[in-house]
């Protein structure tokens, strides 16, 4: 089954990281924020491969 790829911008990633720092840890924010903060930096080819996997 192919993965659902969610694209986020670098600003979203950095905002999520800042929010985690402000709250005092990953356990203090919603799981969505943790996923955004830990977004993978992949090449377009790697993303395409994930989408078709």
């Amino acid at each position: 089954m192919s993965k659902r790829i969610v694209r986020v911008t670098r600003d979203q990633v950095q905002s999520a990281k800042a929010l985690i720092e402000l709250r005092g840890g990953e356990d203090k924010v919603d799981p969505d924020i943790v996923l955004i903060a830990n977004a993978k930096r992949l090449s377009p080819a790697e993303i395409a491969a994930l989408e078709t996997a």
């Binding site: 089954m1 993965k3 659902r4 790829i5 969610v6 694209r7 986020v8 911008t9 670098r10 979203q12 990633v13 799981p31 969505d32 996923l35 955004i36 830990n38 977004a39 993978k40 930096r41 992949l42 993303i47 994930l50």
Partner: peptide, 20 residues
Amino acid sequence: RTIIVPAGISVDDVVVVEDD
């Protein structure tokens, strides 16, 4: 608003990628 994990989809089936 970015929806990371829609209802009915497992977190394990989601890959969040940074893409500008």
